[in-house]
Structures are given as C-alpha cells and as structure tokens.
Design a protein around this nucleic acid. Structure first.
Length: 1151
RNA sequence: GGGCCUGUAGCUCAGACGGUUAGAGCACUGUGCUGAUAACGCAGGGGUCAGUGGUUCGAGUCCACUCAGGCCCA
C-alpha cells in the first residue's frame, strides 16, 4: 500500500520534510561516496560574497550549479562539490565600518588593524553560515560546513584568535590556533567550502604576482585615478564601469581666465580697449586651484565677442549655450591661433601654486588638445593635471607642472591658504565666493550629468594623483590578431589571454566576443588598494631612497628565508595586516632593509586564483592535474567578463598558459515582476528566505530552469503561481490519481511492478502490456529521456523543461484521461505502466526539481521512513536506493520508440480535436451520445482504424467511420511540398506550382492515397511527382456540419441526429454525473457502496433511468436504485437535467 | 563613437537546418467536460513578425542599412 496522497499538497512543508530526510539519511554524502573514484566531472564554483544574506538572484545561479552537478552525479561522475566564499576586500570593510559607526580610515586605525581584520573575518564567517543554511534550503548539494561550527569559530575568533582548538576534519582531528584553523578552512584537512581569505589562497596569489614580476609585467605607476575620499582608496577601472555612475546635479561655473600680455599685464583688446579673457567652464570647481593650462581644439572655430565691459574668447558652437544675454561679435578665428597665449590663473595667489610654478619656471598657457569639442561648456577646457586623468596625460605631453591639492581623505593640503584643512565636498560655495571677489566669475549653472561614485559607499569620487601597482596588459598592436608573431604574443598578457579565450566554449556564444572586447580595451590592471582587509601584496620595497628596489616574495617559505626582522611577530598568523607588515627583508639589490608596501590587493585576485588554490596546485600537483581545468564554471554576466571571468583567465594564462575552464555558462539579470531592477523601496524586492517559504524552492528552480539564460528574468509571486499551476500541480495530480487507484486495485500490488524498467521490456519476468496507450506513453517516455539527456548535456535547461512540460501534458491530458476506466477497474497493465512512468519521470526531474521528485519516489519506491509527513510504503521492492538521487540517470530504450504508433496517436488526437469542434459548432454537449462521426483522412485508414475506439470513447459516439463518397464531403487542395520540390526545380518551381494547381485535385488525391506518382507537364516537359512531394489538403464542402485540419488533411463530420434512444442514454449519463457529484459533496470515499433513490415527474427521464438502471448502478457503486423518496439520513439534492426536474438521494450502504 | 544583445498577440515568451495558412501560456469572452485535476477540452477576438532594401523559386528565420530598448567599452 502506498501512503494516501493529499490532492491539496503543501509543497513548502514537504520540502522541509525532504530536507529532514536527506539530513537523517546523509543522502548527499552517500551519493558522493557512491561515485568516488569514478570518471570525473569538474566544477569550480565562483565564490559568493559572504557579506549578507542571499537574494533570489543568487538562487538562480545556484540552481544551475546544482542542476549540472546533480545531472553528472546521476550519471556516475565523481565531483568535488566545493562551494566558495569571497571574503576579502572593501565590501566587507565598508559594512564592518558601518556596523561600528566608523566614518573614516582614522577610526579603523584607532581600533587597531589586528582587531579590525579579526572583525572582518568574523563577519565573513557569520554570513557564510547564513548562506550555507540558505543554500541547503535551496536543495543545493555541496560539501557544506556545519553552519553551527562556522558560528562557533566566529565566536572563538572574537574571544581570542590565538587560543588553540581541535576540530574534526575528514582525515582526522586538526589542532591549531583559531586564527590558523579559520585560515585553513576549505583545505583538504578541513574540507567544506573554500574561503578566499585562506592562507593557501593568499600565498598562491603571491606566486602569481611573482611570476608576473619575473615576466616584467608588474610595475608601480603614478597616475590620476578615481578616488573615494571616504574609503581613502583608488577605484579601479573594473569597479567603476557598472555600479559606478549616478545621475547627479552639480553647480557648474563659467569663469574668466584673463589674458596676459608679454609683460604679464592684463591684455586689452586693440579695438575696444576692453580687457580680454578666455571663457572657461567646469563642473568641478575644487579643481580650479590646480589649474595650469587651458586647452582649445586647434581645428575648432572660435569667436571673439564683446559683452559687459569684457572681450571673451570661446568656441563658436558654444556661444549660444555659454553666453548669457546680448553680446557683440568682434571676430572669428581658429583654435590654433589661441595657442601659446598666457593668462592669469584663478588661484595664483595660493602659496603652493606660486611655489610650483616658480620651481617649474612656468606660467599659465593655452595648449592644444584634439579632444576639445564645443558640445559642452565654452569650448575651452580648464586643465588641472593633479585632478584629472586626461589632464595628467596632457601634462606629460606638454611638460606641465602638476598641483595635487588633496590628501587621501579629500582634505586640502598645506599651502592652499583658506582652503587648507577643508574637505573637497564642502568648498564649492567658498570657491565661487572667491571667484566673485576676484571678478572672475561669469555665471553659475545647475548641471546634471553621470558622475562616478564609489560603488560601495556611493560617495562622489574625486580624481587624485596617486602611486598604485599595476599588472601590464601589454600593448595593443595595430594589426589583426592572426598576423601577430609568437614573440609579440609572448610579450603581451592581453593576447595570451585571448588565445586562451579561443579554446573555451562560451554559453551563450556571444560571451566569447564580450570577453575579447574587454581584453582589447582594458587598461593595465590596477591591483593595489590603500586599505586594510585583504590580500597583503607581497611587494617589499627597499627603504634606502637611493635604491628603492622592489622585490616580489613568492611564498611564505621565501619570506621566512629573506626575513631579517619581525618574523617572530608574524609567525603563527595568517598573511594579513598588520602582522605580515612587521616582516622586513634584506634588499636583494643593495642589502638594505626592505618593507612591505602598505597596500592590499584587488579582491578579484582572490577570486581569480581559485582554479589553482582549491585544487592543491602547490602541494599536490597530481590532484590538481586531475581536476584542472574545470569542465564548467558559471556566473551571471553583468560585471563578470571584466571581473571574475577575466581574473580566472588571467591566472590560468600567467601560471599555465592554459584555459582554466572548458565551458563558461553565464546568465543575465534577475528583475522584479514589473520588469524593473529589484529595489527595496520599489516594493518588488524579494529576499531568498521569503521566496523559498512562500513559493517553494522546487517552483523557484523550475522558473529559473525554464528560462532562456541570456535574457533577463522577471521574477515574482504571480509568475511563481503560474509555474506551479502549469507543472507542479498537474504532476502531483497524476501521482495522486495513481496512488488512489493503485491502492484500490485488488489485482495489482507493487511486488509485481518494476520501477526501473518499462513494463513491456524484453525481460520475460516483467509483466508486459500490449495495450497501445501503454506502449504509446512508454514510447513517449523514451523520447523524453533521450531529449532531456541531450539538452542537459548541452547545458540547455530551458529546452529540457519545455520537453518535460509537453510530456506531462501528454501524460495527464491524454494517457490518464483516456485510461480512467482502466484505472477504475484496476487494470494491472495500466498500473504497471503508470508506475514505471511516474518513477522514471521523477528520476529525470530529480536534478531539476529535487524535492517533489524525492517525495514521489519515497512513496512509490522506498521503504517508509519514520517522521516524513508523506511516509513511504512498507512493502518496498528490494534493493531500491534510499533516495531518488541515488537511482542513476535513466537511459532510453530506443527499441520502444514506435514511430508509427506515435504518428497514429497524433492523428487520433487531431481527429478528436476536430470532433470536439464539431460538437461546439452543433451545440451538442459531449455527454450526449451520438451515432457516428465520418472521417476523411486520405491514405490513413489503417491508422484511423487502430484508434477508432479511443476516438469513439473520447467523443462519445457509437462508431467512427471512414467516410465514403469523399467527393461529396470535401474538396481537395493540392500543395507542393516546398522542402523537396523547391531545391529540385529551383527557378522552375513556380511553373510546377502552376501545373499542379491546374491538375484535377480528386485525381491527384486518389493517386497520393494509393501511393502512385502524379504525372504533370511543366514547360512542355513531363514531370513525375511522388506522393511524398505532394500535400493533400481536404476542406469541408461549404454547408456541411464538419471541421477540418488542413495541415493533416483530415475532415471530421459529426452525425448530429439525436434519436430517442440516444437521448435516453444521454439523460442516464446526466444522472450518473449528478450522483457522482452528490457522492463527492456528501463526503463519501471513492470506494463506498451506496443506496440511491430518485423522484421525478418527467416521464422521459424516469424511462431513461429504468432503461439504463444497471449501468447507472455500476458507475455509481449503487447497490440499489429505486424510484422512491429519500431515506432517513440520506444526502439529498434536487437538480434540473435538460429541463427535467429530479430529486435524488444517496446514503452509504451498511452505515 | 565602438562592441554585444534584444525587438513576434494586451502581457510573458516559443518559433534548429530558410519551406505549406506564424504558435504557446497568462488575461478576456463563450461553451463544454470532470469521482485525478486549486484543473482541462473546444471555440473566439486579438499580429503590417520594429522599418527599408537585398539574396532566394521561397525570408519571422540569411545579409545590409535605419529606428527603438538594454548591457558593455570609449
């Protein structure tokens, strides 16, 4: 006996039961052990940032990851199942600062770096624990750490990181300090998820960087970079491009740069005698203190105008926008004519400006820059090389002095008079005031533009001159890649990575082009950050100002060897600040003392190294060789082509010059149901926990997998409901139907059934069924197995789910519906078949929908397990695996795919569909039996005869007849099969069409039906067309009660005559249906026997009931059916059946 | 300015290889069926397949250009 199945399942509650079952039976580790040592399938996880709880968008990616790992596991592959957490970097720092109420780096230094770093580690462990729990809830099978242990380690870190503890690892107990245990998480001796803060991860990046250095690609550069003064760090190109811009409004300023004559006095216009000035515009007034030049476009047209006592120079195309009020045009000139003019700067009085200019022997000059346009401002660009990246490039080109006004916190340095000590974000008003006082201000204007902000804290970025460390990408050669020489590629990391990209399969395929495009365009990789929590860049610089040599340390062993002081302070700590900073080494160049630069590394270094660090690259090369490269990596594409995908590629290229993964599967962005990005304030945000508990993760997973990954996914409750209604509930209903009737069937029990093989297989021990519906659904099952296997192998879950939904429709709305009577009667062959199909379907669905499939499998196959709300049977077949996920992937038996049967069934369903349409047109309900239908289907008599019973039953007609006298019923239209005839005749094809339309359609149809060729004359030439070249469409003759399916050439005519006998039979069916409904309403069991009475004034109805009394009793399990008043305690109903009133009563027998 | 993607019914989306009269789900309307079905069947309204040009016997599908939207890079 199967446990009874509710027809109103609570999927979410079931999921919790299944999670409980998996935990109690250790289902995941059992599966892992089953496949140990088999052929391998390697997946390397892209680390999730352990800095908050998961969102539903994380569940999308994790569903793919779980699907493919499960799919390969069911095929017997050995896997690693290692999840990853991204741990280091500014994102964690910023939230720890927020938690602590810190506002600047000074707060961190007051706290102490050791404490701060320790707090960052605790935060990571905390969210790693939460994300682990959430992933488990999703059904994501991985080698998870015990969340409780992660929290315990977090607490121990807080207590005292140096205390010694012992934890149980896969190879036995491990004893070490808490700090070191945490630093060894994910390594073989501890197992579980990898953490990018691990020692191994950090030291392996050291090796990578050293290799870059040895190739000459690592350098320190001085450049003007976007800078966040709150975070006190530069922001790299990688970080600024996506989240890095916001639409902001600033007060921009138009101002005068008064021109100077050779004596350094105000220049006066020769004609008017008025003072002359350049009109200049800027949106960043704070940079005016650092102005050194004004740039014009040499080819651009400029004008000289008079207005309010001044003569201005500005770009011609900018005049309308820039100038306010009336003015007089004095002259036009080319930008080139302005070059070399001297002018007075806006803040020449500042001590630093004076000192810098004096030292450089420089004064403000007009220079040429071809980038200057007239679309913005006044067409004359203020150049401040200390405050802008392009300005800085120009300063190098022209030898201009550089004035850098700000410290790392955005505070004006000494030498800026009244500005000194002020924050850059607070000075706009006083700068405008100063300009006003000096009569330099022309006018102010509110200006809205996209402006870069810090991607983590949203502070507006400034541009600062800084020293940062870079990995050179190599020059961009001005010729096609295929023309590059080997030497040129050897010099350039950029092109080496491109070669690696070529060897990878990108899904979707445009991913390759995206990655190459990024590589073509990217600048040198800035890897340093002036922060605290992160990779300690292993760059030691000689303190001797005369030497300044820098050395890359490639491992902890090398560091120990080179250390001259501070090793004892560092020993026993993870390679993080501040302890690693204590170690000084001897400068290999001059023997002096070298110390580590204070910077930490870009976090994409941390994530990029994982195809090496997680695979024991340093310590067990043969293990690494087994699992490298990964067969698959997967992340969502926003950002990753320049971030994770890029950094993984860079590491694989530098360390091995090999692809670190073979397939890249990426997917788009998850949006709210309204098509907008999810935002808390917009009310369309959905966190993972709410989604899981309200929608259920199997439904969520199906939504994800049913979607084309390269398109954005609109996600919400309505779509979830739609998905559940479309797939999960119908599936459940078929399952519930099966269990109901299997339990009632006297002649069937599970002992005789086989869950793992089709019931009519060649195995003589297995009960076989020749019923065509059974053979049909089994054939469909084999097709589905083949298709799903093929689609999933191709990483195409969308097609796989589409195929599953189509199959479910066939199963539910055709196989079960057409077989209801067989199930009511307990036909063993039907039960065998549905049993096999349901279990096999559950196995196919298992990697995609692990919970519902498990629930079904547990009840249908496995021994009952205590505590599961849907406990299993107690008569389980021997040897059934304890979980559906252990059953292995089903394989298709192609010999069971009977193509003719499938085609014939297709025809039968088409005929039924037309018959239903006839009934609608004739307004005769299906419950009313009719005598016959006539079917015209040229050449398909045999197929039709085969399923005549099914068609008759479905349409409630007595007979299905092949129509004679087709000519009276239908007219034919003959069409050429373009696919075969088009290529055969080419340009002559239109003539063939014409000849065909001129032929006698009845003759052609007859020939085709008989399988004879058709002879035509085309352009005077005889042409023979085979039956396969022609398509016969049958259309109903106008005026008949018929419908047709032109695609298939079928016409169906319904006999609409209702004889008195048919009328009586129809009424009897109405009575049956009424009693069935009453049984249901009265709450009787399906198998309850009843006594039925009826009273009616209508003679016709009474007669019909008497005539069909036996059939009514049988259908409704009525022991008696009497014309009488309701018995005491009976359930009574009065209804109207086709205009005849009747009062009926039912009561349970023997009760 | 350059690269990539998308544009098909009111909404969300399918439409390998070019091939007959372009489909599904949701929503709406009508109708029917039901002792598995919070379902389902049948029918209906709704489409210049973004536009223009080209290749071809034949284009939603291939090519070019244009327009609109998105992502990425300057």
């Amino acid at each position: 006996m199967f446990h009874p199945v509710s027809s109103k399942p609570d999927f979410v509650a079931q999921e919790h039961d299944v999670l409980d079952l998996w935990a109690r039976t250790d289902a995941f580790r059992t599966l892992w052990a089953m496949n140990k040592g088999n052929k391998r399938w390697s997946f390397v996880d892209g680390p999730i940032t352990a800095n908050g709880p998961m969102g539903v968008h994380h569940a999308w990616g994790r569903t793919y990851k779980d699907l493919y790992q499960r799919f390969y596991a069911m095929q017997g592959f050995d896997e690693r199942y290692q999840n990853g957490f991204d741990c280091q970097g500014l994102w964690v720092e910023v939230l720890v600062e927020k938690e602590k109420g810190f506002t600047s780096k000074r707060d961190i230094e007051r706290m102490g770096l050791a404490d701060f770093v320790n707090t960052c580690k605790q935060r990571v462990l905390n969210f790693a624990a939460i994300q682990t729990e959430q992933s488990i809830r999703l059904g994501y099978w991985m080698d998870w750490n015990d969340p409780a242990q992660l929290r315990w380690l977090r607490d121990k870190l807080e207590e005292d990181p140096s205390q010694v503890i012992t934890v149980e690892g896969p190879q036995g107990p491990v004893t070490d300090s808490v700090e070191q245990i945490v630093g060894r998480l994910g390594l073989p001796e501890l197992g579980g998820s990898y953490f990018t803060f691990s020692n191994e991860n950090n030291y392996l990046i050291w090796r990578f960087l050293k290799k870059c250095w040895e190739k000459g690609w690592l350098y320190e550069g001085t450049d003007v970079m976007p800078w966040c003064d709150r975070c006190g760090t530069g922001i790299s190109q990688h970080e600024i491009v996506t989240d890095g811009y916001e639409e902001l409004t600033h007060t921009s300023v138009y101002l005068r740069f008064p021109l100077l004559d050779e004596a350094g006095q105000q220049r006066l216009d020769a004609e008017t005698g008025l003072p002359e000035a350049l009109l200049v515009w800027t949106t960043t007034p704070w940079t005016l203190t650092s102005n050194v030049a004004a740039a014009v476009g040499p080819e651009l047209d400029y004008i000289k105008v008079q207005q309010d006592g001044w003569v201005y120079y500005l770009a011609k195309g900018a005049a309308k926008r820039a100038l306010a009020g009336r003015y007089t045009l004095l002259a036009e000139l080319k930008g080139a004519e302005l070059l070399g003019w001297a002018y007075a700067g806006p803040f020449d009085e500042l001590p630093t400006v004076q000192a810098v200019f004096q030292k450089a022997g420089y004064s403000h000059t007009v220079i040429a820059w071809k980038e200057v346009g007239e679309e913005e401002g006044a067409g004359i660009v203020h150049i401040a090389p200390g405050c802008g990246a392009e300005d800085f490039q120009l300063s190098k080109q022209y030898g201009l002095p550089v004035i850098a006004p700000l410290d790392e916190a955005g505070i004006y340095l000494e030498g800026f008079a009244w500005l000194t000590g002020q924050n850059v974000h607070d000075v706009a008003a006083s700068i405008f005031g100063s300009l006003q006082d000096k009569a330099l201000l022309y006018r102010l204007e509110e200006y809205t533009h996209r402006y870069p902000v810090c991607w983590r804290c949203k502070t507006e970025l400034i541009f600062r001159l800084v020293d940062e460390w870079f990995i050179s990408m190599g020059e961009v050669y001005d010729k096609p890649r295929e023309e590059l020489t080997a030497e040129e590629v050897d010099r350039s990391l950029r092109y080496q990575i491109m070669e690696v990209v070529d060897q990878i399969r990108w899904i979707p395929s445009f991913g390759r082009e995206r990655e190459l495009d990024w590589l073509r365009n990217m600048h040198d990789w800035m890897i340093s950050k002036k922060r605290y929590w992160g990779l300690a860049l292993p760059i030691w610089v000689c303190e001797d100002p005369a030497c300044r040599h820098f050395h890359l340390v490639g491992s902890e062993h090398e560091l120990k060897e080179l250390a001259v002081e501070g090793w004892e302070r560092f020993e026993g700590h993870t390679p993080h600040r501040p302890y690693v900073d204590a170690v000084k080494i001897a400068c290999p160049q001059c023997g002096g003392r070298a110390s580590r630069i204070a910077d930490v590394g870009n976090p994409w270094l941390d994530a990029g190294i994982v195809t090496f660090s997680t695979l024991s690259y340093r310590n067990d090369r043969s293990y690494w060789e087994k699992w490298f490269p990964a067969d698959l990596i997967s992340e969502s594409f926003p950002g990753q082509f320049r971030n994770w995908f890029y950094s993984v590629l860079a590491m694989g290229t530098v360390l091995e010059r090999r692809p670190p993964f073979l397939t890249n599967f990426s997917y788009a962005t998850l949006l709210g149901e309204d098509g907008r990005a999810m935002h808390k304030s917009w009310g369309n945000m959905l966190d993972f926990h709410d989604g899981a508990e309200r929608i259920g993760v199997d439904v969520m997973r199906w939504m994800f997998l049913h979607h084309k990954p390269e398109q954005n996914l609109l996600f919400g409750f309505h779509r979830a409901d739609e998905t559940r209604r479309r797939f999960h509930i119908p599936l459940w209903n078929v399952y519930s139907f099966f269990v109901t009737y299997a339990n009632l069937a006297p002649a069937w029990s599970v002992e005789r059934a086989t869950w793992s093989a089709p019931p009519h297989s060649a195995d003589p021990d297995v009960q076989s069924s020749d019923h065509f519906l059974d053979r049909w659904i089994v054939a469909r099952m084999q097709q589905l197995i083949e298709l799903v296997t093929q689609r999933l192998t191709d990483y195409d879950s969308e097609s796989a789910t589409v195929a599953c939904e189509a199959f479910l429709d066939d199963l539910s709305n055709w196989y079960v519906r057409r077989n209801r009577r067989r199930f009511w009667e307990g036909d063993p062959a039907a039960l065998d078949t549905l049993y096999y199909v349901l279990v096999t379907f559950a196995r196919l669905l298992a990697p995609m929908m692990p919970f519902v499939s498990e629930t079904i499998y547990q009840n249908l196959v496995v021994e009952g397990l205590e505590g599961l709300s849907v406990p299993g049977r107690t008569d389980s077949p021997d040897g059934a695996p304890v979980s559906v996920h252990h059953t292995g992937w089903p394989t298709a038996d192609r010999s069971l795919i009977d193509e003719q049967l499938l085609a014939d069934m297709d025809l039968a369903r088409a005929v039924v569909s037309l018959g239903h349409a006839d009934r609608v047109a004739a307004e005769i309900k299906v419950r009313q039996p009719l005598a016959d239908i006539q079917v015209v289907a040229a050449g398909k008599a045999q197929s039709l005869a085969r399923f005549a019973d099914v068609i008759a039953d479905e349409l409630n007609v007595k007979r299905v007849e092949l129509a004679g006298g087709e000519a009276e019923l239908v007219q034919y239209r003959i069409l050429p099969v373009n696919k075969t005839l088009g290529p055969r005749f080419g340009k002559e094809f239109p003539a063939v069409r014409q000849a065909l339309s001129a032929a006698d359609p009845y003759a052609v149809a007859a020939a085709v039906a008989a399988g004879q060729p058709v002879a035509l004359t085309v352009n005077g030439q005889p042409v023979a067309l085979g039956p396969e070249d022609l398509l016969v469409q049958a259309e109903p003759r106008p005026g008949l009660q018929v419908t047709n399916d032109p695609q298939r050439g079928i016409v169906v005519a319904l006999n609409t005559v209702i004889t008195p006998a048919l009328k009586a039979e129809g009424l009897a069916r109405e009575v049956v249906r009424t009693i069935q409904q009453m049984r249901k309403d009265a709450g009787f069991e399906v198998s309850d026997r009843i006594h039925t009475t009826y009273q009616t004034e209508d003679a016709g109805l009474a007669e019909a009931i008497e005539l069909h009394a036996a059939a009514i009793r049988q259908e409704t399990l009525s022991l008696s059916l009497d014309a009488a008043g309701p018995a005491a305690g009976a359930y009574v109903a009065t209804v109207d059946l086709d205009g005849a009133g009747v009062t009926m009563a039912v009561r349970r027998a023997g009760g």
